[in-house]
Design a protein around this nucleic acid. Structure first.
Length: 777
DNA sequence: GGGGGAAGGACCA
DNA sequence: TTCCTGGTCCTTCCCCC
C-alpha cells in the first residue's frame, strides 16, 4: 500500500496493483512476499503488465495532484468544511434507522463447492474453477497457496503446481442458485440477488410473524449420510466443505418416526441459522451470513465468520460505532484498490480515520464521494432492499486471441449484435445508445457510443450502428490493422416501447418503389440499414463492403428518385447517387433537364458553383474530433441554414425539429431539441440536401418543360395516392402536409386531416417543413 | 459563466 | 496465457441560455 504520494510507484520493483489481494476469507496469514514474487515473475514484461504499469502511473499522478491540492488548503477552508461535515453528520444521525434486520447471505466458494459436491474426489485437493487464462473461484485448500478468483490459471499453477482446474459450468450453478433462492424467498419474498451466490434479505417482517409460530413450523428434519455429515434431501453426496460450526451440528432431537430433527428459535440469529441449515440440506452446500441494521454492515458481517458461519451486529448505535472503528476501509463494499490507495496516501486506513479526516476529504473529493465516506464512517447504509431497480444497460462482450482481420472483426461484431438482440428481446427492451467496446492487444480499452433518435433492438439495427463505430476505429488506425483481443456491444438509454417508433418516415424509406406495406411507418432502421448498405458501397475496405452488402433488398430492382420522382433502373448506389446529384443541382439552379448520358458522367459540373454560392467560397473543415469524423465539406440548400461544425441550429432558421426526418444512416440526428447534429461515422464527405422547403424560401419552381419527364400525375410518397396535379409546388405542399400528419399521428393523433383533400397550402401549417436526404459521396 | 447533456473512461463487485 | 457483465461516478467537451 502507498504510504504517501508516489512512494509505491514502479521504483519498488513491482506493481502494488498486481500484488496479491488477500482480502478474502481463507487467505489470512499467507506468505505475501513469496506469493507476490511469483506473481511478478510470471507477469513481468507481458503486455498486460505494461498496461497495469501505465494504469498504476495514472493513479499515482492522481494521488500527486491530490497531495498538491491538499498542500494548498487553508485553515479557513478546513474549518468551513468541518462545519459542513458536522451539520451533515447531525442530520444523518437524526435519520439513523436501526429498525430493520438486514441479512447478507453469501455461498462459500460457490462454484468450487458445486464442483466438489459433484465430484467428491476433489474434496481434499486444491482446486479452482476456470481456465488457464482466468479463474472464477478457488476452494479453501487452494487459497492457502494464494490462489484466488480473478487470477490467471497459469499463475495459479505456479503458486500451486498440484492445483486442479475445473472448467466452469454456469448452467449447473444457475440451477443450484435457483434452489438456494427458493429458500431465500421463504424469509423475504422481495430478497435482492446480487449474483448467483449472494443476496440481501430484509427479514424484519419474517421475524415479526415468526414470533407467533408454533415449534412445528420451526422444526426441520435432518438428513445425514453415514459419515454423520449433513446431506441434501434432493442431492445425494457429501457436503463439500465440512466445518465445525455447521448450522446442522447443534444437538438434535428425534421425531416420532425416529428421524433426527432440529428445532430453531424465533430470534434473528436462529432464523438465519435455520435458513443456512435448509440451504445445506437442500444443496449440500454451505453459506455464510451477516445480520445487521443495514446492507453495508450486513455485507461486512457476512465475511466475519466465513466460511459456514454467521455474525450478528446488534441493532444499537454504540455497537455499530464500535464495530466500524477499527474496520479497514478495504472491507467496505465500494472501496477498491484505487480508493484504498488514495485514502492510504492521506494516512487513512480504517473507518475511524475516515471519520477523523472528513473535512479534508470533503475538500479533496467530489460531493458524492465524501458523502459516501461519511456514511461509511458513521456505519450507515441502505435499509431498503430495492429489488426491481430499473436496468440501465445490457451488453455482451467476448475475449479472444489476437484478431486483426477486418472480415473476422465485422463478423464478430454482427454475432455480438445477434446475441445482444436476443437478450434484449427476452426482456422486451429497446435502447437509444449503442456502445462498441474494444480492447486492443495492449489491453487498452476504448468505448465508442452513438445515440440514435429512436430506440432500437434488432440485430440489423444494432449492427448498423456498431459496424459504423467499428469502421471508424479501423479507419483511425489505418493503414495499420486494428489488433483486438476483446469486442463488446452495449445498449443503454432504455425507453418505453413507444420510443421505438420514429417520428417520421425517412425519405429513404420512400425511395424503393412500392414496398410491401406502404401504410406502415417503419422508417427507422429498416430504412437505415438500407441506406447504410448503400452509403457503404464504395467502402475503402473491400471486406467491409462485401460484408455490408451481403443482404440485398429483396424484390427491388429500381429506385425512385426523390427529386424528379422518376424510376432509376439501378440498385447501384453510385449510379443512383449520381442521378440524384444531377437532379439536385438542377433543382437548386432552377433546372432539371439533364439527360441520362449526363447521369453517367459523374458529379455535376455546377456543384462547385453551388457550393460557393452557399458557403461563400469557404470550405468547412472538421476542426475537432470526438468520437466521430466531421464534415470536410457540406453543401446545403440556401434556406438560411449555416453549418456550425457538426451542429445545425434549427431555432435560428425557425425550423420545427419534428418535421425533420431522422437520418437514414445515423449520420444526422436531432441532437437536442432544436439542433440537428450532422456527423459522419463512415465518410468525411457528406452532402446534406434539404428538399422542398415549404416555408420562408419557396423552392425554385421548375420550368414547365422540366416537369414533362415526371409524367402527368404525381404519386405522394407518404399517402401513396396519386395527386390531381403536376405542379411541383402544390404537390410538395401536399407531401409536406402528409409528412406533418405522419408526425402528428406518431405524436398521438393530435389532428386528423383527410390527406387526399389537401393539395393546397393548409392554414394550420405554421412554419416551414423540410425533408432532407443525405448521401455520402 | 453556469447548467446540463453526451461521450469516454475509471473503478468496483 | 490475465474474465465477464453491469453499474456508478468523474471528467471533458460543447451547446444553450
Amino acid at each position: 500500500m502507498a504510504t504517501g504520494g508516489t512512494s509505491s510507484s514502479s521504483g519498488e520493483g513491482f506493481l502494488s496493483r498486481m500484488a496479491l489481494n488477500d482480502n478474502k476469507a481463507g487467505m489470512e496469514g499467507l506468505n505475501r512476499d513469496k506469493i507476490n514474487k511469483i506473481i511478478m515473475e510470471s507477469s513481468k514484461g507481458s503486455r498486460f503488465y505494461e498496461n497495469e504499469l501505465k494504469k498504476e502511473q495514472q493513479v499515482n499522478q492522481r494521488i500527486e495532484r491530490m497531495m498538491l491540492q491538499k498542500a494548498h488548503i487553508t485553515e479557513q477552508q478546513l474549518s468551513k468544511a468541518q462545519a459542513q461535515v458536522e451539520k451533515m453528520t447531525s442530520d444523518l444521525e437524526r435519520g439513523r434507522d436501526l429498525s430493520r434486520v438486514i441479512v447478507h447471505v453469501d455461498m462459500d466458494a460457490f462454484y468450487a463447492a458445486v464442483e466438489t459436491r459433484d465430484c467428491p474426489d476433489l474434496m481434499d485437493k486444491p482446486m479452482a474453477v476456470g481456465s488457464m487464462s482466468m479463474l472464477s473461484t478457488s476452494n479453501y485448500h487452494a487459497r492457502k497457496f494464494g490462489v484466488r478468483a480473478a487470477m490467471p490459471g497459469f499463475i495459479a499453477k505456479k503458486l500451486c503446481p498440484n492445483l486442479v482446474i475445473v472448467p466452469t459450468n454456469f448452467d449447473k450453478y444457475r440451477a443450484v442458485s435457483a434452489e438456494v433462492r427458493e429458500v431465500f424467498a421463504d424469509y423475504d419474498p422481495h430478497f435482492l440477488p446480487m449474483s448467483l451466490d449472494e443476496a440481501y434479505l430484509d427479514i424484519s417482517d419474517h421475524l415479526e410473524q415468526r414470533r407467533g409460530w408454533p415449534e412445528a413450523l420451526r422444526t426441520h428434519r435432518l438428513h445425514t449420510n453415514n459419515t454423520g455429515t449433513a446431506r441434501g434431501i434432493e442431492v445425494e453426496g457429501l457436503s463439500p466443505v465440512l466445518f465445525e460450526n455447521s448450522p446442522s451440528s447443534s444437538p438434535c432431537l428425534q421425531d416420532a418416526a425416529g428421524g433426527e430433527v432440529e428445532v430453531f428459535g424465533t430470534c434473528a440469529e436462529e432464523a438465519v441459522r435455520e435458513m443456512r441449515f435448509r440451504i445445506e440440506q437442500k444443496t449440500s452446500l454451505t453459506a455464510s451470513a451477516g445480520i445487521a441494521p443495514n446492507m453495508m454492515l450486513a455485507k461486512v458481517c457476512s465475511d466475519k465468520n466465513k466460511p459456514n458461519g454467521q455474525y450478528r451486529l446488534p441493532s444499537n448505535r454504540q455497537a455499530v460505532i464500535d464495530f466500524i472503528q477499527d474496520l479497514p476501509v478495504r472491507k467496505i463494499s465500494g472501496i477498491g484498490k484505487v480508493t484504498e490507495k488514495m485514502l492510504g496516501a492521506l494516512g487513512i486506513t480504517s473507518c475511524s480515520h475516515l471519520g477523523q479526516e472528513m473535512a479534508l476529504l470533503a475538500l479533496l473529493f467530489s460531493e458524492t464521494s465524501w458523502h459516501h465516506f461519511l456514511h461509511i464512517s458513521m456505519g450507515l447504509g441502505s435499509t431498503h432492499i430495492e429489488r426491481d431497480g430499473e436496468r440501465k444497460s445490457m451488453s455482451t462482450e467476448r475475449t479472444f486471441g489476437e484478431m486483426g482481420a477486418l472480415e473476422e472483426q465485422f463478423s464478430l461484431c454482427k454475432e455480438l449484435c445477434q446475441d445482444l438482440a436476443q437478450d434484449l428481446q427476452k426482456e422486451a427492451l429497446k435502447g437509444k445508445t449503442v456502445t462498441l467496446k474494444l480492447k486492443n492487444v495492449n489491453f487498452e480499452v476504448k468505448t465508442r457510443a452513438w445515440t440514435l433518435p429512436c430506440a432500437v433492438a434488432t440485430t440489423e439495427e444494432l449492427f448498423a450502428v456498431a459496424k459504423d463505430l467499428l469502421k471508424t476505429e479501423i479507419d483511425n488506425v489505418s493503414p495499420q490493422p486494428l489488433r483486438l483481443r476483446l469486442m463488446g456491444v452495449r445498449v443503454s438509454s432504455f425507453a418505453s416501447a413507444d420510443d421505438k417508433k420514429p417520428l417520421q418516415k425517412s425519405i429513404v424509406g420512400f425511395l424503393h418503389k412500392k414496398q410491401t406495406d406502404s401504410t406502415e411507418t417503419d422508417i427507422s432502421m429498416s430504412a437505415l440499414t438500407a441506406s447504410d448498405k448503400m452509403t457503404h458501397e464504395p467502402s475503402a475496405h473491400a471486406s467491409t463492403s462485401s460484408y455490408c452488402s451481403t443482404e440485398p433488398e429483396s424484390g427491388t430492382d429500381s429506385l425512385t428518385c426523390p427529386v424528379c420522382f422518376r424510376e432509376v433502373n439501378t440498385t447501384e448506389l453510385t449510379v443512383f447517387n449520381r442521378h440524384i446529384d444531377q437532379c439536385l443541382s438542377g433543382v437548386t439552379m432552377g433546372q432539371n433537364n439533364h439527360t441520362d448520358t449526363e447521369l453517367e458522367r459523374g458529379p455535376c459540373v455546377c456543384e462547385e458553383e453551388v457550393e460557393k454560392e452557399i458557403t461563400g467560397g469557404k470550405r468547412e473543415e472538421g476542426p475537432k474530433e470526438k468520437g466521430s469524423k466531421l464534415l470536410s465539406r457540406c453543401v446545403l440548400d440556401s434556406v438560411g441554414l449555416r453549418l456550425d461544425s457538426t451542429n445545425i441550429s434549427l431555432s435560428t432558421v425557425g425550423l420545427n425539429p419534428v418535421c425533420l426526418n431522422t437520418c437514414p444512416n445515423g449520420d444526422v440526428s436531432i441532437h437536442r431539441a432544436n439542433t440537428l447534429k450532422v456527423s459522419s461515422q463512415s465518410d468525411p464527405h457528406v452532402r446534406v440536401c434539404l428538399l422542398s422547403p415549404g416555408g420562408p424560401r419557396p423552392m425554385t419552381t421548375p420550368k414547365p418543360e422540366s416537369r414533362d419527364h415526371r409524367g402527368p400525375a404525381l404519386t405522394c410518397p407518404v399517402c401513396q395516392e396519386t395527386q390531381d396535379t403536376n405542379d411541383l409546388t402544390l404537390f410538395n405542399r401536399h407531401v409536406d402536409l402528409c409528412l406533418n400528419q405522419e408526425v402528428l399521428h406518431e405524436l398521438g393523433g393530435l389532428a386528423s386531416v383527410d390527406r387526399t383533400t389537401h393539395t393546397a397550402p393548409p392554414a394550420a401549417h405554421k412554419g416551414p417543413c423540410f425533408r432532407y436526404v443525405l448521401f455520402t459521396e
